[in-house]
Amino acid sequence: MKRTVLFCAAIILAAIALATSSTAGAKDAATAEFEKFRDVLEEDNPAELFEMKGEELWKTKRGPKQVSLEQCDLGLGPGVVRGAYVAMPRYFADVGRVMDAERRIVHCMVSLQGFKPEEIARQPFSNASQTPEQTALVTYVAGQSRNMKFAIPMNQPGMRETYEIGKAVAAYRAGPYDFSCSSCHGDDGKRIRMQELANISSPEGAAKSVQGWPGYRMTGGVMLTLQWRMNDCFRQQRFPAPNYLSDTITALITYLSANAEGSLYKGPGIKR
């Protein structure tokens, strides 16, 4: 065998110095460059490592009750993972309420495997040294809806009301800066500094806001979920912190996901 090796080590540095200082015209050029870069990375998105980890966690007998999550019902029947992510949030009759994907997965970890909710809530989101198990699980479940369309079952009990509440949450102005979600995410074509802002009230904008979550964030190299995204928006909104897996966040995610109805979900994404 010939040993001709083209050692094209695509060493991807987490700290991509995406020049925050480029011109308005070059800003679009910078955005375009980043888009290209992201396209390359999407082929080898480290999020896949978390999908693998999540799949292993899903199938392994774990927790005080030593069972796997293969009996977890994500809305399409016990153990059905394929297509479940793009059909959540949804109404779950066993608990009589609407749940989003992360909330439902944690519910299964608690109810089937016997994990303690307060222990799971102790570290809800990834940091540099630790990725919570539920983050990997959400990434796995989301990966099983890759290239499927958002199809939120709005005709189920409580869904319409949850949507309307989410819409009202997005409009709620409070805090020292009088911000609501819609202060920044209510119009087309706006930016904070260089960061483009999705208009969550439009189908295209809402699709952008849910697309790419859960996402691998290159800055810091951590895997983050839509629950995290909502949490960090409230931080920037200068609000106090939303409790993990709360009704408010489920309502907001319902509002976003239903507005994104019919758009194609490309799977776990990559973020700068």
Partner: peptide
């Protein structure tokens, strides 16, 4: 919905 959203928000956030 707004009234419900407000009571939800008040229950769901922590300092």
């Amino acid at each position: 919905p707004r009234a419900k959203a407000i009571s939800m928000i008040k229950a769901d956030f922590s300092a």
